[in-house]
């Protein structure tokens, strides 16, 4: 399997990088010059017509969408998440899509608050995003407390742990005061992310991308 990840450090492609390293899948990194406008280039749009990062080129053609790439890796390797025959598959898919279309989207609204309704409404958009982010992390926390699923666990690495780990990293670091989150408010999630960031594969990515020693639980340290 020949894989090329279009990557910029600490962008969403980092989530895919954690999964590739954990799976020990050989891959090439193609560094994307985001500030130089590379995402808008015709060459990049042929790989990903949406013009966002990440994209993963595979033997079966180019892929985009973080969640889609993670799921494809799970299904191709049989690791880091339940496969189609696994009884946990339905719940795993539910929370993977929730992370993608609810938690990740709310995080983007926090980081780019002018997007929903223009600069004039940025403050309101950011306040709304903050409320959604806390509520959505709360749903994940309650699910972990009630179900202790194998696919988002301190005892088993998984794509969803890395996905939520990178989102939490950004949600701790990036929002302007008074916004942002305290991971200690979500102790079950904190335990899952602490276990993920301590794995050898995670340490390799953190070192290479310059994310610090505890990129999920104490970013910026």
């Amino acid at each position: 399997m020949t894989l090329t990840l279009h990557h910029a450090p600490d962008f969403a492609s980092t989530i895919v990088r954690f999964a590739l390293e954990e799976l020990e899948l050989p891959h090439t990194l193609a560094i994307v010059d985001i500030d130089g406008g590379a995402l808008a280039s015709p060459e990049y749009r042929r790989v990903n017509p949406v013009g966002l990062i990440p994209a993963l080129e595979t033997d079966d053609g180019p892929m985009f969408e973080t969640g889609a790439i993670l799921l494809w890796l799970v299904d191709r390797t049989g690791r880091l998440g339940p496969g189609p025959q696994d009884p946990g598959r339905g719940a795993f898919l539910s929370w993977l899509f929730f992370t993608s279309n609810a938690l990740h989207q709310a995080a983007l609204a926090m980081f780019y608050p002018h997007r929903p309704a223009g600069e004039a409404n940025s403050a309101a958009a950011q306040a709304a995003a903050q409320e959604q982010i806390v509520a959505r992390l709360g749903l994940i926390e309650a699910m972990l407390a009630a179900q202790s699923p194998r696919w988002l666990s301190p005892d088993h690495p998984g794509v969803l742990g890395y996905y939520i780990g990178v989102l939490v990293r950004w949600l701790i670091m990036l929002p302007p005061a008074p916004y942002g989150i305290r991971l200690a408010d979500f102790p079950y999630l904190q335990a899952v992310l602490a276990a993920h960031e301590a794995r050898p594969a995670a340490l390799r990515v953190a070192a290479s991308d310059g994310l610090g020693p505890t990129p999920f639980t104490n970013p910026g340290s």
């Binding site: 949406v50 595979t58 079966d60 053609g61 180019p62 892929m63 985009f64 969408e65 973080t66 969640g67 889609a68 790439i69 799921l71 494809w72 299904d75 191709r76 496969g83 189609p84 899509f97 993608s100 279309n101 609810a102 990740h104 989207q105």
Partner: peptide
């Protein structure tokens, strides 16, 4: 199916529909 060469196309547009168009 997961090993089908069309799987990447299927998954990427399904996620795009969910987290971008529908959202």
């Amino acid at each position: 199916a997961p090993a089908d060469p069309d799987r990447p196309v299927f998954l990427k547009w399904l996620f795009f529909l969910s987290n971008t168009a529908h959202a």
